[in-house]
């Protein structure tokens, strides 16, 4: 990553007990060479598994693999600025929200720090508890607002409920967050490519193969080599359509004006920007979705429709 590129940052939200800390630890264990920085409101109950910690200070915990965890106290923006100033610039920042915080507000605060880019709002929901939480007379509207702000809802502890209950809960959440994708998981074990997006270097390597590769058995990847020019913004918006089933996408494409553009997609959130990297070859697109959920024909049609003729 170029030193001037904005650092992608993800907000990890969800009500108490949904599995936020489990997800953070899972991602730290499967960071795949990324240097992650975890920002927590406070070092309350220890946010990081003990075996991952290599050193601990008052406001910063050093984690195996060059990762760190920082407490930002009451000033999120100062915490983000501190991270941006670290000698070892992190590759990706995870902001773990408190159980009653609104992840959307944290996302908005992130937009105030120019060296970061909001990558995605991930909201976890406990599959067995979320229905009662949504109905809670005190917390219901807060949980509702948390879910509605999500790009990806991780329907966690999916193994602890029946398939019927899981399906019903999934459609309930989809109705609360129409633009988001709902992803079932157990023990918050979401593939890192879905949680954090495709790692640039690796994505382009995979794309070169121009076939499909499995992230895990539950997910599948589609890769395309796409020569020529595209309406990149239009393509990003089209790929964000929920009916296509795409959880994550990353593309490096040439636009109508001949510029090299990066396309990023996380659930319903999509973004295109001029690529900072020099010398990379345009014409790659990688998509990930749940196995069997990617609407391949419609995806192909969307790509062709965006091709400039």
């Amino acid at each position: 990553m170029d030193a001037n590129d904005p650092i992608p940052a993800s907000v990890i939200g969800g009500y108490l007990g949904a599995g936020k800390t489990t997800l953070v630890n899972h991602l730290l264990r499967h960071a795949g060479g990324r240097r992650l920085a975890v920002l927590v409101n406070e070092f309350g109950e220890l946010p990081i598994d003990a075996d991952l910690i290599v050193g601990a200070g008052e406001r910063l915990i050093a984690i195996a693999g060059g990762c760190v965890c920082c407490a930002y106290g009451s000033d999120l923006i100062a915490g983000l600025e501190d991270l941006a100033g670290l000698a070892d610039r992190p590759d990706h920042v995870l902001i773990e929200a408190s159980g009653v915080a609104l992840p959307g507000s944290i996302g908005a605060a992130l937009s105030l720090v120019p060296c970061f880019r909001l990558d995605a709002i991930l909201v976890l929901a406990d599959a067995g508890a979320i229905a009662a939480q949504l109905a809670d007379r005190f917390m219901g509207d807060t949980v509702h607002r948390q879910i509605a702000s999500a790009d990806l809802v991780l329907l966690n502890k999916a193994d602890l409920v029946s398939a019927r209950e899981l399906a019903a809960t999934g459609s309930r959440l989809a109705s609360l967050a129409p633009a988001a994708r709902i992803v079932p998981a157990r023990r918050a074990s979401l593939p890192v490519e879905i949680a954090l997006g495709l790692h640039a270097g690796r994505a382009w390597r995979d794309a070169a193969g121009a076939g499909t590769a499995h992230v895990t058995a539950a997910f599948e990847t589609l890769s395309f080599v796409l020569d020529g020019a595209f309406d990149v913004t239009g393509l990003a918006a089209a790929l964000a359509g929920p009916e296509l089933g795409i959880l994550r996408a990353k593309g490096l494409l040439q636009d109508r004006a001949g510029r090299l553009m990066v396309l990023q997609l996380a659930g319903g959130r999509h973004e295109t920007e001029i690529a900072a990297a020099e010398g990379a070859r345009a014409g790659r697109l990688v998509l990930i979705g749940q196995a069997g959920h990617l609407a391949k024909a419609a995806i192909g049609a969307a790509i062709e429709a965006a091709r400039c003729r």
Binding site: Y15, L16, G17, S98, G99, V100, L102, F138, M139, T142
Partner: peptide, 8 residues
């Protein structure tokens, strides 16, 4: 806004 969860 809530600043504390009922469980806490």
């Amino acid at each position: 806004l809530w600043y504390i969860a009922p469980e806490q």
